[in-house]
Amino acid sequence: MSVVATPKVRRRGWLLAACLVWVGVLLLVPLVGIVITALEPGIHVVTQTLRAPDVIHALELTAVITAISVVVTALFGVVVAWVLVRQRFWGRSLLNATVDLPFALSPVTVGLAALVLFGPGGWLASFFESRGIQIIFALPSMTLVTIFICVPFTIREIVPVLEEIGLDEEDASRTLGASVWQTFFRVTLPNIRWALAYGVALTTARAIGEIGAVLIVSGLLQGKTETATLFIFRAYEERQVPAAYVVALLLAAVSVTLLVVIEFLRHRQERERSRT
């Protein structure tokens, strides 16, 4: 069979080439740049950087913030998604729109909003200060802004799946004698598990990479409120360029791994959805 390049096929070929160049130049070249630059000075720089107390602390802090954010957004994400799909109430569409607010807001704005609430002289600052709880320039505010930014991911993944599944299986479960909780854990949750996992993966990637909001509320206390992204930011400013690149490479590696995991989960979810 011979392939004849009809004008239509040729046009499609150009389109494909344009896409490849676009993705390649825009996304892959910078990534390759980081890999090469980070590894260029030799492996000893990598090991040295990863052993530095500042770096270890920054990575730990990022891990803690990410872990808390993922757990909180997953829990509330499931609840909010369920309420949005299964309940009809006044203000439902308002809630639905509000969920997407973090997508629309710049993280810096989110950080400033947190300052208004918890910063020096902030609305809620005295309440916590009088109880000896440090919110701003500490882990609580950094986690809070990260959670805020990550709110939509799980919700937006679960809502369409819940909508598609409908009420029948949950109704069936209840007529068979299951309680509301048994129905949730044995029927609803297994049905949304891949969507939830996908949402968690997206949340993780987003939380690890967050810098704008965290930058504002952290107070930039080196070795105390410095996350991995903030470390890169400072290291670069202070001309510790190789260290900045090594940590950047590490974050990129985690993100790429997550991307692969996300792709895998997406396939699982699609296969699940094709079942009826």
Binding site: D168, E169, D171, A172, S173, T175, L176, G177, A178, S179, Q182, R186, V187, P190, N191, E272, R275, T276
Partner: peptide
């Protein structure tokens, strides 16, 4: 209750579906 669109639990086998009411 028997539903028009069956409403079987898609993540369970036939036996698990039938046993669900006894299990809960």
């Amino acid at each position: 209750f028997v539903f028009q669109h069956y409403a079987l639990f898609r993540h369970m086998t036939v036996a698990e579906n039938v046993g669900f009411g006894l299990r809960v």
